[in-house]
């Protein structure tokens, strides 16, 4: 399904770039990315280790709607979080006014500009329900 969407994108991008030379075609494809700011794209992706791919955490995501906006808790879903909410929370971690086990370490290393852009990035991500990956029995032929 995802593959199909990707192909659709490609076909679309091809149609829109029919008049461009080879080089232009390649450029056209990459601008179809959901995040055109490549600096923020990879910075936001580094949050995925704790908050999930594109901010869709696989844990702690039950009953998020019923939680207060005050705190969605650790490893919260960031996808679709309002810009002002995410900005305020990161700024809170940054100046120490928000309690944290680890987020102050991350927020303090970011610039205000990066915080604003991260907030814009995550607010645009689609909220998708995700669950943890299932583990398997280790096979005999593994190292």
């Amino acid at each position: 399904m995802k593959q199909f969407q990707v192909i659709c994108f490609l076909v679309l991008s091809l149609i829109t770039s029919v008049c461009l030379p080879v080089q232009g075609f390649a450029t056209e494809v990459s601008t179809f990315s959901d995040e055109q700011n490549t600096h923020i794209r990879s910075l936001a992706a580094s949050c995925a280790a704790c908050h999930g791919t594109f901010g869709n955490s696989v844990v702690n995501n039950q009953n998020i709607a019923s939680r207060s906006t005050e705190s969605k808790g650790a490893n919260a879903v960031l996808a679709g979080m309002a810009v002002t909410e995410l900005t305020e929370k990161l700024l809170g971690f940054r100046d120490g006014s928000r309690k944290a086990t680890v987020m102050h370490r991350h927020a303090k290393g970011l610039t205000i500009d990066e915080i604003n852009q991260l907030a814009a990035h995550f607010s645009k991500q689609q909220r998708i329900d995700k669950s943890p990956i299932k583990s398997e029995i280790l096979k005999a032929d593994h190292e």
């Binding site: 995925a48 280790a49 704790c50 908050h51 999930g52 791919t53 955490s57 696989v58 844990v59 702690n60 650790a74 490893n75 086990t101 680890v102 995700k130 943890p132 990956i133």
Partner: peptide
């Protein structure tokens, strides 16, 4: 802390899903 023990489990689940799904 035990709290960070729980967050470390959440870290593992998110990094596994980020890497492998």
């Amino acid at each position: 802390s035990e709290k960070e023990g729980e967050y470390a489990v959440a870290w593992s689940q998110n990094i596994w899903a980020d890497t492998l799904t």
